[in-house]
């Protein structure tokens, strides 16, 4: 599979608990009045209306050496000991990318500049969590597809900039996933724009199933 699969509208429920946690809410400690909770709900509802999740995914064969190199069938070489370790049982990899889109980022900027920082931080946290959830979703979606071949997607994934997987690898991910086609750009410093855009790599390995596991 050399061409990525594009997801133009990923629909997910807002991971409300995760957003609260990201904002420092602690069940046993934090006290939130009913009016404040309502305000939060309203902002999260607004966020849900403005986050336009899109994504792309690409399965590639990969040669994982013993050291720190992962060579993709495209000839790209990813260097990271941590990544190579994670992919040690995989013969294929899943590249995936997701973005929350420009609309929510525009709202965050305008709230931030317009003196409504409280709303901006909630929108920001919501967009971050939704984008992460989109990667989970893509992973589950591809997982369902490869299951009939007796394969599964590794539960862990790596992102460029994490551990020894240098951020410059984001350029390779960006190009292979053709993220430009879902309105994501990349800076010279390998940062994705809009800000709430992420890429990750996971392994695809043989599913250790004794019984069942095929839908066909």
């Amino acid at each position: 599979m050399r061409d990525p699969v594009f997801f133009h509208a990923i629909h997910l429920d807002m991971p409300v608990e995760a957003v609260y946690r990201r904002l420092g809410y602690r069940k046993a400690h934090t006290q939130l009045g009913p009016g404040q909770r309502r305000d939060m709900e309203t902002v999260l509802e607004d966020a849900a209306g403005m986050i336009e999740l899109k994504g792309s995914a690409l399965i590639l064969k990969a040669d994982v050496g013993r050291g720190s190199e992962v060579t993709l069938e495209t000839g790209d070489v990813l260097r990271s000991r941590g990544l190579a370790r994670m992919l040690s049982t995989s013969r294929k990899v899943l590249l995936m990318g997701a973005t929350a889109g420009n609309r929510i980022m525009g709202e965050i900027s305008s709230c931030s500049a317009g003196g409504n920082l409280a709303r901006a931080v909630v929108l920001d946290a919501a967009a971050s969590e939704m984008t992460d959830s989109a990667l989970d979703w893509i992973s589950a979606c591809i997982g369902q597809q490869v299951r009939r071949e007796g394969l599964e997607v590794t539960p862990r994934r790596f992102s460029a900039g994490y551990g020894d997987f240098d951020l410059t690898n984001q350029k390779i991910m960006y190009e292979r996933l053709r993220l430009g086609e879902i309105d994501v750009s990349i800076t010279d410093a390998c940062i994705l724009l809009p800000e709430k855009s992420v890429t990750a790599i996971a392994g695809i390995r043989k599913a250790e199933r004794k019984d069942g596991g095929k839908c066909q």
Partner: peptide, 20 residues
Amino acid sequence: LYEKKIYFLPQLIASAEAMK
């Protein structure tokens, strides 16, 4: 209140904005 986690970030900022 924030340091004791009785408040979380949106509350801290809402208060700061009211103050401002």
